[in-house]
């Protein structure tokens, strides 16, 4: 009924200290971790093919650079607030520790703690012999009969008390019953008086301040807490696992469910679906679905949207996560055409280039679209074909007169990564064949090459370069070796609102029915070192002599297989499609057979 | 709101969505077929009358083909197909209608290919694949059409799928090699 309040200010500092530490320690740890790892990832971004990143910055329009700067500033503002809180929090902690240390009341309470080792003046790890010898020495000093006669009664009683304590200390370390008491209650005499109370000073609870405190609690428990919980709950409920709004996801699912196979899947179709996204409506409630569609087409056709330019940039930035969400749903519905067109749409938005037979060339900077159709007698559609011509001729084909611009365009064109398949197989870790009902994965060895590089047949890369590590670690986790590769560098995307590095999406299709069998695997780690090599197809004359396989870096891609291998023995055919989300051209598309044997 | 015209016996929904429009067309077609049916004891058995008409037109086409009159043959086959689309009622056995159409389409494909109408042939082949015909000869023709239309990437996808369903097919293998060569050239 009646509580003791913290009159002497002994307990509330500990309470506040505990609460602060619970918040500050993980927050500080998180912040330090981000600082350390954030620095590291920037480092790898800088190592890899920085040409694309540099060019991307160079060719980006003023509005895009402003947009990027704004979003970086927003992020750092929040970080500054967090940092401020951490600094303020630790300052309060330091003050509290100092307060506790200097508070007499707390010190007094602390001295009531019974410490036998301190009383006997020995270390906590002393043996029984040392304990006994220490006791004998001290009892000689403090025994009432041994005390000097000159001491005052006060001094005497103090020393006698000390002697009692020393005896108790000795007993609590040696005598069974006393030791039990000490271990159980922290004192040899058994349970001491304990007090329970409220760790708050009385004035907060008893007087007029109490109404404020009650109001504070009511506000906290009745208003603030439910508000935050309901806001968090509705946020979680409204977003799917892939990070898109549930209404957008259900719209996409509905479109896929009602999809008629006679309908041709085009860029316009995907853009139309995209413009119905709930995220857009929430960002710009005053704009219509048709406006969103127009803005997306503006982005693809590199058209300025007037006073809706900023809206366009925000929508384009958001469409990245929406397209990945749609891709996930499309693969769940096993629809290959929509899956591939979704990735192509992302390319179109990232490069601001429409899907046409000439997309590979139109994604380059400084290209004059008219000259592509008129500039040359041969119909050139691919980067690979482009590099069969001399630089000057390329300038004519692309319609670039300025030599500096031509050099920049050529450096971008030769830095766009293309994947060349060297080896592909189904692998079961630890086995030499794929056995029935085993769990295989798809192991690809690829070469990241430039369109400028001369073609060479995959068998010119010796088998030794394509072997995986054969140790126990790699059998336990076959995918760990892919993580040793560097992250992808910045994409050349001067028309995209944010800096990005993108990825490759790997789709697996069952050849029997032509349908996708699992959700896409995203590949965001590959070495681009080969792109720096000057193995120009126009200058290499003798392939056998000039090609040195050991100078090339082999990329490692591992795609998990979502089902166990079939029960029956035989050959089963799968189509593997690896599409880039960033550039037109560097995709892989091949058939792989799974030989299931005993 | 559903509207019914007692004279034409047709249903209508103003401002209907695409899906509702489709349903309406289906119902109305069924109604028209029923109204036009003279035999009160009709069955799914295909009407011999229609079969005869369609067959006549088609055989006309085959004759013209033998006489090397390709353009006319194509026209006749088109007429035969159109006749089937118009005359066949919705309740006549699906299996029969499907086979009839597929058979005529296969001939149409070959006639188109011979005359260099590759896009037409491709669409017909797409139709055949979509309606369940996944035999090697479909893959062979589709690969060939795609190559002629310079769509080498799609041609590769088709020929590889064809080979995975029929790995020993010689013609498909030849097409695969040829397409790979053209693709390499396409990519410089």
């Amino acid at each position: 009924q009646s509580y003791d309040y913290d009159e002497a200010s002994e307990t509330w500092p500990f309470f506040i200290l505990a609460v602060l530490c619970v918040v500050l320690v993980p927050l500080t740890a998180m912040q330090l971790w981000e600082l350390v790892s954030g620095g590291k990832s920037d480092q790898t971004l800088n190592d890899q093919a920085s040409i694309l990143g540099e060019m991307s910055e160079k060719y980006a329009s003023r509005e895009i650079l402003e947009f990027r700067a704004k979003s970086v500033a927003k992020k750092s503002k929040w970080l500054a607030k967090r940092n401020l809180f951490i600094i303020a929090g630790w300052t309060v902690v330091a003050y509290l520790i100092q307060y506790i240390g200097s508070s007499e009341g707390i010190q007094d309470a602390a001295t009531l703690l019974f410490d036998p080792y301190a009383l006997l003046d020995i270390s906590a790890s002393s043996t029984d012999r040392e304990v006994r010898s220490a006791y004998r020495k001290l009892s000689v000093k403090f025994h009432p009969d041994k005390l000097s006669k000159d001491l005052s009664s006060e001094q005497r009683s103090v020393l006698e008390e000390q002697y009692v304590l020393i005896t108790k200390a000795y007993k609590s370390l040696t005598d069974e019953i006393t030791r039990e008491n000490y271990l159980k209650y922290g004192h040899p005499d058994g349970p001491q008086a304990t007090s329970h109370g409220i760790a708050l000073p009385k004035f907060l609870v008893d007087s007029s301040a109490s109404t404020l405190v009650i109001l504070g609690y009511v506000a906290l428990l009745g208003i603030v807490l439910p508000y935050f919980v309901s806001r968090w709950w509705s946020r979680t409920q409204s977003v799917t696992k892939k990070g898109i709004h549930v209404k957008s996801a259900s719209y996409f699912s509905n479109r896929l469910f009602n999809f008629k196979p006679s309908q041709v899947v085009t860029l316009d179709l995907i853009v139309n679906w995209l413009s119905h996204a709930e995220e857009f409506k929430l960002m710009f409630p005053e704009l219509s679905v048709e406006t969103f569609e127009t803005l997306l087409h503006d982005q693809i056709n590199r058209k300025h949207s007037g006073n809706l330019e900023n809206a366009k940039l925000r929508i384009v930035a958001k469409s990245n996560v929406l397209l990945f969400g749609l891709l996930d749903i499309a693969t769940t519905f096993r629809n290959l055409e929509i899956s591939t067109m979704t990735i192509d749409t992302l390319k179109a938005i990232v490069q601001a280039t429409s899907i046409s037979p000439y997309s590979q060339l139109l994604q380059l900077p400084n290209v004059n679209p008219e000259s592509l159709t008129e500039g040359s007698v041969d119909d050139i559609r691919t980067l690979g074909k482009l590099f069969t011509y001399e630089d000057a001729k390329i300038g004519k084909i692309l319609g670039i007169d300025d030599s500096t611009k031509l050099q920049e365009t050529l450096s971008v064109a030769s830095s766009i990564p293309h994947l060349k398949l060297i080896r592909a197989e189904f692998k079961v870790p630890g086995e030499s064949v794929v056995t029935p009902q085993s769990t295989p994965h798809i192991s690809l060895k690829v070469l990241v090459r430039s369109a400028k590089h001369k073609f060479f047949p995959p068998n010119m890369i010796p088998d030794e370069m394509c072997l995986d590590r054969d140790d126990f670690e790699s059998m336990k986790d076959p995918f760990a070796s892919t993580l040793e590769q560097p992250r992808l560098p910045q994409t050349f995307a001067p028309y995209f609102p944010g800096k990005r590095s993108g990825c490759w999406c790997a789709l697996v299709v069952l050849q029997k029915d032509g349908k996708v069998i699992q959700t896409p695997m995203l590949i965001d780690r590959l070495s681009f070192e080969n792109l720096n090599k000057d193995f120009d197809k126009r200058t290499v004359k003798n392939l056998e002599e000039e090609f040195k396989p050991e100078e090339w870096v082999i990329g490692n891609i591992k795609i998990p297989f979502s089902q166990p291998a079939p029960e029956e023995k035989g050959d089963f055919f799968f189509r593997v499609i690896v599409k880039s989300t960033e550039y037109f051209g560097p995709d892989l598309d091949f058939t792989l057979s799974m030989a299931v044997r005993d | 709101t559903l509207q019914y015209d007692a004279n034409s016996k047709l249903l209508d929904v103003p401002d209907a969505s695409e899906d509702i429009e489709m349903n309406l067309t289906q119902i109305n077609k069924l109604t028209q077929d029923l109204v036009g049916e003279t035999n009160p004891n009709f069955t799914p058995q295909p009407r011999d009358e229609s079969t005869a008409m369609i067959k006549k037109l088609f055989e006309n086409g085959l004759k013209q083909l033998q006489q090397q009159k390709m353009a006319e043959a194509l026209k006749s086959v088109n007429l035969a197909i159109e006749m089937a689309q118009r005359k066949r009622a919705s309740w006549e056995a699906f299996a029969v209608q499907l086979q009839e159409l597929q058979f005529m389409m296969k001939n149409r494909v070959d006639l188109c290919l011979v005359q260099g109408k590759f896009m037409d042939a491709l669409q017909d082949l797409d139709f055949l694949q979509n309606t369940g015909l996944t035999t090697s000869d479909v893959f062979i023709r589709k690969t060939d059409s795609l190559m002629k239309l310079k769509q080498y990437e799609q041609a590769r996808a088709e020929v590889e799928r064809g080979l995975s369903l029929d790995p020993t097919n010689a013609k498909l293998r030849v097409l695969h090699i040829e397409n790979t060569r053209r693709l390499a050239e396409y990519n410089g």
Binding site: - | Q85, L101, M119, Q123, L149
Partner: peptide, 22 residues
């Protein structure tokens, strides 16, 4: 049968779309 008819009738539209694309 109606679905088959619809798919057949879509051929013309598909031809247009692909011609434009390519």
């Amino acid at each position: 049968n109606q679905a088959l008819k619809r798919r057949f009738q879509a051929i013309l539209l598909r031809k247009e779309v692909f011609s434009k694309q390519w």
